[in-house]
Design a protein around this nucleic acid. Structure first.
Lengths: 103, 103
DNA sequence: GCAATAGTTCGAATATAATCGAACTATTGA
DNA sequence: TCAATAGTTCGATTATATTCGAACTATTGC
């Protein structure tokens, strides 16, 4: 059973989180996960090659935004909402609201 | 009299704002401006060469975070707080609080 | 065991960003 | 007018990100 490395919440870097969110595709992934959770990678591909999708999920994971769980043959992703809220209160919500507004 | 190009608030890009904030030096500039405003570039150099400082201010300006006004021989910078708040309510405040907390 | 599915890893190519010195511009104040 | 100060612009270098195909791994279900 493959398992993922997930950074501990105490080690989250704000700049890494902001950088992860600053890519339009990754921001869209986060937006989508905020609405529907958890989700495998496949429904979030959006025409991209798998290696590219995998790379972006890895950025989100290393920043602490996304938690990935292996479930059978799929890898289920969810946002680390509580931990993020605890460490950086209001941040994710404000970004999601802003992303909503940015259409 | 030199004047700066400042994007209109309606054209702010959320991803550009997040990217501008994702650099530790630029985030520190924004934090400092939030406390003391306006401020020339010089007191924010922190040992960097002027060309590098100028580059980072230009990133902040193009993203819509900073407004620069030529005052005599110095260029005074301030945050575009109201416009940002209007467009992306709570975003800047949440980032500043997070930056505070990130030590 | 084997084919199918989901996603990762590798490596190379390309794009984007950061860094820095040197030359430049604009303004002040003597 | 001239020196000094504040900051920009240019160009080159280096570092970091993104993109993609191809080969790989792990799991399921037949």
């Amino acid at each position: 059973m493959k398992h993922y490395e997930h950074p501990a919440a105490e080690t989250f870097e704000l700049t890494a989180i902001l950088h992860a969110l600053s890519d339009p595709y990754r921001l869209w992934i986060v937006q989508t996960l905020a609405q529907t959770q958890p989700l495998a990678c496949a429904p979030l591909q959006g025409g991209r090659p798998k290696s590219s999708v995998s790379h972006h999920f890895s950025v989100l994971r290393r920043a602490g935004l996304v938690w990935t769980e292996v479930v059978g043959t799929t890898h289920m992703n969810s946002l680390r909402t509580e931990e993020l809220e605890h460490l950086f209160p209001g941040l994710l919500a404000a970004v999601l609201r802003a992303a909503e507004r940015a259409q």
